[in-house]
Structures are given as C-alpha cells and as structure tokens.
C-alpha cells in the first residue's frame, strides 16, 4: 500500500517559513527540523497514517446528541467506513474521546478523569454545541463547553449535528492527525494522574 507523501507544510513550524504570507513555501528548515532525519519524518507519516485510520473511540455519551451518535454508528451513515469502527468503553484502550452531549458541573470531574486515564496519543472531539460551547444552556448547572476543562481538537457544531457533519469532523481530525508529528517513542515523563 502506498504511504501518503510527506507534507512539508504540516511538519514545518511557523517560525521556519520564509517569504511572508503570499509565498508560504518553506525554503529553509529550522535547526529542529534538520535534526529530524529523513527516516524519522517518514516514520512520523507512517505512524500518522496508521493512527488516523484506526481510531478507537470512547463515546462519552450524555445527552440528546447520543441519538445522532447512534445514527452515525448504524447502518446508513456507518462511521466504520472511516476507520473509527469500534467504540471502546475503556478509556485506556481509546484514542479519541468523543464528548457527545451536555457536560454539566456535576459531570465535569468525571470527564476530566476519563480524559486523564486515556493514554497518549489522544484526541478529543466535541460533538454538538453543548460540548463545544454550552449551547443554549447557559445557567447554573452547565459547563460552557468541554474545552473549559480539557483540550479539544475538533468541534462539530449542530444541535445535534447531522451524522454527515460528524463524519466531516472525523475527516478533519484525520487530517490533523496525519500532519502531526508522531514519534516511535518518547523520553518524556508521563504526566501525573489527576494533575
């Protein structure tokens, strides 16, 4: 199978680009990029390709958006076509946390806990306006968007979003995963739980 080509614009940090806005082609790489060898870049792409096409999701289903999530899972829209087939109900086995529905204040420690339990690399999708911004629930009980407690990668608007929108969001997330830098291993220390 053919691996996707190296995409220069994805791997090059903003600071390394010369030539201003109109000519956004990287002509020189930064020190950092020089040190990344040819092999590592290809490895990163390969890993990105593999990761984006086998997304294991953890559906954190709370509310009405769950109905459209069910539709997106079922026969007609079939999210499995895009490599996100299997919901894993253990955060340890999941790559993608889908926040489907309203997050209220009582729920927020649970959500944070689930997010912390997931292993790196992990991505988060805010499914519906409630998870993105609180939606039209603006009162004492609700959190104004899941991004107030955990970082979010993709926002899917809609109340609830149609399944097509979800699939679109998934494709955008896949592009994002492809252009991120992936390493085979990391020397960083894992962050402590609950911090």
């Amino acid at each position: 199978m053919k691996l996707p080509m190296l995409r220069p614009e994805g791997n090059v940090p903003e600071s390394a680009r010369l030539g201003g806005e109109e000519n956004n082609v990287p002509v020189m790489l930064s020190r950092l990029d020089e040190t990344i060898g040819f092999f590592e870049k290809n490895l990163s792409n390969a890993l990105g390709w593999a990761r984006k096409n086998s997304i294991f999701q953890y559906p954190f289903v709370t509310a009405c958006c769950g109905m459209e999530y069910m539709s997106a899972m079922a026969g007609r829209y079939d999210i499995a076509r895009f490599g996100a087939e299997f919901p894993r109900f253990s955060p340890r086995q999941a790559d993608l946390l889908m926040i489907v529905g309203t997050i209220n204040v009582k729920q927020s420690p649970v959500l944070k806990r689930v997010y912390d339990q997931m292993c790196e690399p992990k991505w988060v999708m805010a499914f519906g306006v409630c998870a993105s911004s609180g939606g039209f629930y603006d009162n004492y009980a609700t959190l104004q968007g899941a991004d107030r407690i955990i970082p979010v990668d993709v926002y899917v608007p809609g109340c609830p979003p149609r399944p097509e929108q979800v699939l679109d969001g998934l494709k955008i997330l896949q592009d994002k995963i492809q252009t991120q830098r992936h390493r085979a291993s990391t020397m960083e220390r894992a962050p402590e739980m609950g911090k």
Partner: peptide, 16 residues
Amino acid sequence: DYPVRKRQLLVPELDF
C-alpha cells in the same frame, strides 16, 4: 433570588 448563571465549579477551568 438565585442568579441564573451563578455556577459553582468542581473542576478549575483551563487557562489557554
């Protein structure tokens, strides 16, 4: 007399 939007958070909000 309880304000509509008076929240009492359980998790501190992130600072981006």
